Simulated assay, not measured.
Amino acid sequence: MNILITAGGTSEKIDNVRSITNHSTGRLGKTIGEAFLAQGHLVTYVTTPQAVRPSSDSNLRLVEIETTNELESALLDEFKHQTFDSIIHSMAVSDFTTEATLSEDDFIEKLAAKLTTDDSLSDLANLTEELYHSLDEISKSIQQEKKIPSKTDRLLLFLKKNPKIIAMLKQEQPHTILVGFKLLVGVSTEELIQVGQSILVKNSCDFVLANDLEEIRGNQHKGILIDSDGQTETAQTKNEIAQLIVKKVEEKWRNQ
């Protein structure tokens, strides 16, 4: 089988030395990648600079990205050149990216200058509309500094939504066996399964691995694999999760 795995966590730049990221190490993705490689499958492994990665293997090809936009571009490029029997999308993708950064003083000055030029702003509806319009304009300010000065007491970050990578995977590779992942924190098993099923249906996944951050510590990593029929299987470690995913993907591929 030809497998694509995404793993690690994307980062979104604030300036040339700062970024917003998450705590994903890529350890689960690494374990899944090594499990597929052990079965002789070809693995294209898309990951980030800080994440761990599978041991070197003749069937392993690494693709390194950093931001969500880079991830989207890399995947679209891969899809132009090959078809994947399965995509394991375990990467923690940032929901938002930085649109602009402003010091408190710059923000107040820009907003005040904008609002004092219009006499109609005594009306609440007009004021509200103008505030939204002003924020939109300010958020599009071009970032001039390669490193934001640290002298400001407050730094305002304007964030905008990133594209949902998982939503486009089946669109681009309609026959792939898609495994999605959902991480929640401190929820019941019932809620974990319910949310996992909603992700599966929304993104046309074949399987979703739902897990709770509070159930991940040391060698323990409880995960619930949900299939398109609503059936579930539970694993207790990263290795068990990896073996379960490989088994289920291979079975589905053979039965197609």
Rank of each mutant, 00 (worst) to 15 (best):
I224H: 04
L42N: 12
T232Y: 06
K248R: 15
M1C: 12
L111G: 00
H221S: 13
T152H: 11
L209Q: 03
T25Y: 08
L200Q: 09
R217D: 10
M1P: 10
H89W: 03
K147P: 12
V249D: 00
T234M: 12
L169A: 01
L111Y: 12
I245E: 03
P49R: 10
K238Y: 03
F107L: 14
D85T: 00
P174W: 06
V93S: 07
S58V: 07
K164W: 00
L131D: 09
R53K: 12
A242L: 06
N2D: 12
E34C: 03
H133D: 15
S228C: 08
I14Y: 05
A38Y: 00
T189G: 05
L155H: 09
A113R: 10
F107H: 01
L169P: 02
R61P: 08
K238D: 05
E129Q: 15
S139M: 00
V63Y: 01
N2E: 15
L37C: 06
P174N: 03
D206W: 04
N211C: 09
I5R: 05
N211S: 13
A167I: 10
E34I: 07
I245L: 11
P54S: 06
T128A: 15
D229E: 12
I148N: 09
L225F: 11
T117Q: 14
E215W: 14
T44P: 01
N22A: 14
T48V: 07
A51I: 07
V249E: 00
T31D: 14
Q143R: 13
L157K: 04
V249C: 06
L213G: 06
K114Q: 14
F207C: 06
L135S: 06
K248Y: 01
E233S: 13
I177W: 01
S86M: 06
Q256G: 15
C205V: 01
D85Q: 07
G223V: 04
S204C: 10
G230Q: 10
L213A: 14
S24H: 09
Q236Y: 15
G40A: 00
E191P: 04
L111Q: 05
G196F: 09
L75A: 08
S90I: 02
I3A: 05
I245M: 09
T128P: 05
R27K: 15
E240Y: 13
Q194G: 08
G26A: 11
A210E: 10
E104D: 11
G218E: 11
A167R: 15
R61D: 10
D57G: 07
G186M: 07
F158P: 02
K80H: 08
D77C: 04
L178T: 02
V46E: 04
R61E: 14
S86A: 15
I32G: 02
Q236N: 13
T44G: 01
A74M: 00
T44Y: 12
V43P: 05
N126W: 02
C205R: 04
L209I: 11
I216S: 10
E72A: 14
N16E: 15
E12C: 02
N22I: 07
L159S: 13
I142Q: 13
G230D: 03
N255T: 11
L75F: 06
L127S: 02
T234E: 07
R53T: 12
K238F: 03
I165K: 08
L60T: 03
N211Q: 05
T176V: 00
Q39I: 03
E215D: 13
G180D: 09
Q197Y: 06
K140Y: 04
S120E: 13
D212I: 01
G196S: 02
T31I: 15
